[in-house]
Amino acid sequence: MPRVRIPPAELSSPPPAGYRRPVATFRLQGSKVLAVDVTGDAVRAKNGSMVAYEGRMAFKKMSGGGEGLRGMVTRRLTGEQMEVMEVRGQGTCYFADRASDVTVLALHGDKLCVEASNLLCSDGGLRTGTTFTGLRGGAGGTGLFTTTVEGSGQVAITSDGPAVVLRVTPRYPLSVDPGAYVAHQGDLRQSFQSGVTFRTLLGEGGGEAFQIRFEGDGLVYVQPSERNTVGGDV
């Protein structure tokens, strides 16, 4: 069955009466709980993140990092093991993860790169995969691989504190702390830059030895908190 493409304005507004949309709707219940209305379709959520539901729901464990045998090999090799469950049913399901803040965003055919631990829930029609991030992951303390989400639909990501969305345009590139980086979407190139000088080597660094630089056109999500990173110590 072909999936109906929804214009962005309709994503946030309630569906008109008598019209049953084949896609689950995501809404925020406060800043830390995500409510998803499902009508027979499926969403993918982080394992064990359900806190409550109304109606009938079935939970089934899936494996992240792509489908099939290739996905399995990728997961084994990369260690980016996303523990995912498929939620299917009729009603409203509430998700939350360790009291972290939730941000809902919409994808319209573009790609979102996010840490597996920060991905709370995604529409069943979106494709997930794993990509190599290079040095950034190593410095960010999140591993060398990251999860990608592609397609059209809604995604919910979590962050420690409310996430800040920063726009990147070709004229205004952006540098972020690897420990505060959560996700990015759009057509962005990332490079790793280091501010290591001889002072750093002497132990007189400012605690901001590494940054990720984003260039191109897209959005970067940053959390107001820093994970423990190698860069933060020097």
């Binding site: 830390k32 993140s49 806190v51 939970f59 089934k60 360790r98």
Partner: peptide
Amino acid sequence: WRDMVGRGSGEAFQLELSGSGAVYVQASEE
């Protein structure tokens, strides 16, 4: 059977509340 072979979804047990009233749920599993 998935839970038995260690491939559970992490949602094996649920409290079902029925009747009339209200339940309070926290945004965390801790």
